[in-house]
Measured scan of single mutants.
Amino acid sequence: MTEYKLVVVGAGGVGKSALTIQLIQNHFVDEYDPTIEDSYRKQVVIDGETCLLDILDTAGQEEYSAMRDQYMRTGEGFLCVFAINNTKSFEDIHHYREQIKRVKDSEDVPMVLVGNKCDLPSRTVDTKQAQDLARSYGIPFIETSAKTRQGVDDAFYTLVREIRKHKEKMSKDGKKKKKKSKTKCVIM
């Protein structure tokens, strides 16, 4: 069974824990209790493949930012979460993405942009803004509501699919490099 290491990042209060708990335990946590770091595991079937999701729910508070490099190193894919009623959390996505790329030393890291709290009427981040940002990053965008469960499975499952595509691409690139290195030079 394939294991996928997913990391949920975003500013404090955007609903990272609520999304994760909704996926794992099928219930909505409405009281806000700032996370330092929590880890969850769940076995699911995605596109006919049974897999184990190892999900790291991270601290959004700035005082825990020193811990970010460590979990970013171990993560295979990242859910970059903002709240649709919090423009600052949307603007912060850029910083999370840049930090992930720096730590992973790669421009090509599996990510999904997630606009959470889409059940709320007080939207300050337009869907088109988020779609445009995701398009500019070359990553999928999904709106979710941890409260109603809308888009929750889709967000995590899409990230797994992005990781699969990335692994497939990397193995193809690896095979191309191996083929090239088999060419021999004969000096007579």
Rank of each mutant, 00 (worst) to 15 (best):
residue 63 E to L: 03
residue 63 E to R: 06
residue 63 E to V: 03
residue 64 Y to Q: 03
residue 64 Y to E: 04
residue 64 Y to S: 04
residue 65 S to R: 06
residue 65 S to W: 04
residue 65 S to G: 13
residue 66 A to M: 10
residue 66 A to S: 13
residue 66 A to Y: 12
residue 66 A to G: 13
residue 66 A to L: 09
residue 66 A to V: 10
residue 66 A to R: 05
residue 66 A to F: 13
residue 67 M to H: 07
residue 67 M to Q: 06
residue 67 M to C: 05
residue 68 R to Q: 08
residue 68 R to A: 09
residue 68 R to V: 04
residue 68 R to G: 08
residue 68 R to I: 03
residue 69 D to H: 10
residue 69 D to Q: 12
residue 69 D to T: 08
residue 69 D to R: 06
residue 69 D to Y: 04
residue 69 D to C: 02
residue 70 Q to W: 03
residue 70 Q to Y: 05
residue 70 Q to L: 04
residue 70 Q to R: 09
residue 70 Q to C: 06
residue 70 Q to T: 09
residue 71 Y to N: 13
residue 71 Y to H: 10
residue 71 Y to P: 15
residue 71 Y to M: 07
residue 71 Y to L: 04
residue 72 M to C: 08
residue 72 M to I: 07
residue 72 M to E: 07
residue 73 R to G: 11
residue 73 R to I: 06
residue 73 R to D: 12
residue 73 R to W: 07
residue 73 R to H: 12
residue 74 T to M: 06
residue 74 T to Y: 13
residue 74 T to D: 14
residue 74 T to F: 05
residue 74 T to Q: 10
residue 74 T to W: 14
residue 75 G to E: 04
residue 75 G to I: 05
residue 75 G to F: 10
residue 75 G to R: 04
residue 75 G to Y: 07
residue 75 G to P: 05
residue 77 G to S: 02
residue 77 G to H: 01
residue 77 G to T: 02
residue 77 G to E: 00
residue 78 F to C: 02
residue 78 F to H: 01
residue 79 L to C: 04
residue 79 L to Q: 00
residue 79 L to T: 00
residue 79 L to F: 04
residue 79 L to H: 01
residue 80 C to D: 01
residue 80 C to M: 12
residue 81 V to M: 11
residue 81 V to S: 04
residue 82 F to M: 13
residue 82 F to P: 00
residue 82 F to E: 02
residue 83 A to G: 15
residue 83 A to Q: 14
residue 83 A to L: 02
residue 83 A to F: 01
residue 83 A to K: 05
residue 83 A to R: 05
residue 84 I to Y: 15
residue 84 I to K: 14
residue 84 I to M: 15
residue 84 I to G: 15
residue 84 I to T: 15
residue 86 N to Y: 02
residue 86 N to L: 02
residue 87 T to R: 10
residue 94 H to L: 15
residue 95 H to R: 14
residue 96 Y to W: 15
residue 97 R to G: 05
residue 97 R to A: 14
residue 97 R to K: 14
residue 98 E to A: 05
residue 98 E to D: 06
residue 99 Q to G: 03
residue 99 Q to S: 06
residue 99 Q to H: 09
residue 100 I to F: 07
residue 101 K to C: 11
residue 101 K to L: 15
residue 101 K to G: 06
residue 101 K to R: 11
residue 101 K to P: 02
residue 101 K to S: 06
residue 101 K to F: 06
residue 102 R to C: 10
residue 102 R to S: 10
residue 102 R to V: 05
residue 103 V to W: 14
residue 103 V to M: 12
residue 103 V to S: 07
residue 104 K to F: 08
residue 104 K to H: 14
residue 104 K to E: 04
residue 105 D to R: 08
residue 105 D to G: 15
residue 105 D to V: 04
residue 106 S to L: 13
residue 106 S to E: 13
residue 106 S to C: 13
residue 106 S to R: 10
residue 107 E to H: 08
residue 107 E to D: 10
residue 107 E to N: 06
residue 108 D to Y: 07
residue 108 D to F: 09
residue 108 D to G: 06
residue 108 D to L: 04
residue 109 V to P: 06
residue 109 V to Y: 05
residue 109 V to H: 03
residue 109 V to I: 13
residue 109 V to F: 11
residue 109 V to R: 03
residue 109 V to N: 02
residue 110 P to D: 02
residue 110 P to H: 02
residue 110 P to A: 03
residue 110 P to R: 01
residue 110 P to I: 02
residue 111 M to P: 00
residue 111 M to I: 11
residue 111 M to K: 02
residue 112 V to M: 04
residue 112 V to L: 05
residue 112 V to Y: 02
residue 113 L to K: 00
residue 113 L to F: 13
residue 113 L to Q: 01
residue 113 L to H: 02
residue 113 L to A: 03
residue 113 L to Y: 10
residue 113 L to N: 01
residue 114 V to H: 00
residue 114 V to E: 00
residue 114 V to A: 03
residue 114 V to Y: 01
residue 114 V to Q: 01
residue 114 V to M: 06
residue 114 V to K: 00
residue 115 G to W: 07
residue 115 G to Q: 05
residue 115 G to V: 12
residue 115 G to P: 06
residue 116 N to H: 14
residue 116 N to T: 15
residue 116 N to V: 15
residue 116 N to G: 07
residue 116 N to Q: 14
residue 116 N to D: 06
residue 116 N to R: 00
residue 116 N to F: 00
residue 117 K to L: 15
residue 117 K to F: 15
residue 117 K to W: 15
residue 117 K to I: 15
residue 117 K to M: 15
residue 117 K to S: 13
residue 117 K to Q: 12
residue 118 C to L: 09
residue 118 C to D: 12
residue 118 C to N: 09
residue 118 C to S: 11
residue 118 C to I: 12
residue 118 C to R: 06
residue 118 C to P: 06
residue 118 C to A: 10
residue 119 D to S: 05
residue 120 L to V: 15
residue 120 L to Y: 15
residue 120 L to W: 11
residue 120 L to R: 09
residue 121 P to V: 11
residue 121 P to K: 11
residue 121 P to C: 09
residue 121 P to W: 10
residue 122 S to W: 08
residue 122 S to V: 10
residue 122 S to A: 11
residue 122 S to L: 08
residue 122 S to P: 09
residue 122 S to E: 13
residue 122 S to Y: 08
residue 123 R to D: 14
residue 123 R to I: 09
residue 123 R to S: 14
residue 123 R to C: 13
residue 124 T to F: 09
residue 124 T to P: 10
residue 124 T to M: 11
residue 124 T to Y: 09
residue 124 T to A: 12
residue 124 T to Q: 12
residue 124 T to N: 12
residue 125 V to G: 13
residue 125 V to E: 13
residue 125 V to T: 11
residue 125 V to F: 09
residue 125 V to K: 11
residue 125 V to L: 10
residue 126 D to F: 07
residue 126 D to I: 07
